[in-house]
Write a protein that binds this DNA or RNA. Structure first.
Lengths: 111, 111
DNA sequence: AATTAACGATCCATAAATAGATCATTTCAG
DNA sequence: CTGAAATGATCTATTTATGGATCGTTAATT
């Protein structure tokens, strides 16, 4: 349990917990100790524990690093294709409007 | 560009950038300004900018919160099913070994 | 083309995350 | 069953992220 926590929605909190589960599972499947994963990720043992617990305060870089090491696939792209995915999407991004003007109809809460 | 950055692997860095792209795209599709998203997520405007830029230092809770608001689907589970996904996986987790003993073949960093 | 909101970047003070050490407990191997 | 190792938890010092303000630039609308 983290010392303190900023308020987050249930979906965001659950997403962090889910990712923590995937990381823990991947680590155990690979017969790695928490300490071993921490060392390879370049972080402390305590941070790995918080990551696996789904602490929403952890830096996303540390979490993704741990995920990568234990083989958790992010956003339907493996290590080989993630870079290309990002690159090809830059073109798409370039076509989007650079600034949003009208708030139009009240922000959609439907999801 | 973030002030400072802890070293992360290309895959982790690209993953953060990819998620930032998805969030930015979702925000623009919904005609939301950066400021509007920031307010709804309960964070500062500057943080949203860093999130969309793929800054690996951002708290994962803030990133997932922004993702949720603009409708980015995480780990193949929408808001309705994420909670159940986590819950049903607790049983699976319970079956895994609680501690890892043998390093098996010492983490061979031979290459 | 002019207007003005949105954006991106930077600086500083403050709040928060992280590292590192330590201790108790659990759990696996012999 | 026993011993050693892994885990989980907690504490403090330090590093770092974040909020909030500001400024120049960009770009959408008229």
């Amino acid at each position: 349990m983290p010392k303190t926590n900023r308020p987050v929605s249930p979906y965001a909190a659950d997403s962090a917990i889910r990712l923590g589960q995937l990381i823990r599972r991947g680590r155990i499947d690979r017969h790695m100790t928490v300490a071993a994963l921490a060392e390879r990720a370049g972080v402390s043992r305590g941070l790995i524990q918080r990551i696996e617990a789904g602490d929403t305060g952890c830096a996303i870089g540390a979490v993704f690093e741990a995920a990568a090491i234990v083989g958790v696939r992010l956003f339907d792209a493996g290590p080989a294709t993630m870079s290309r995915e990002v690159e090809s999407n830059r073109e798409v991004m370039a076509l989007l409007p650079k600034a949003i003007r009208s708030q139009r109809t009240e922000p959609n809460d439907d999801f």
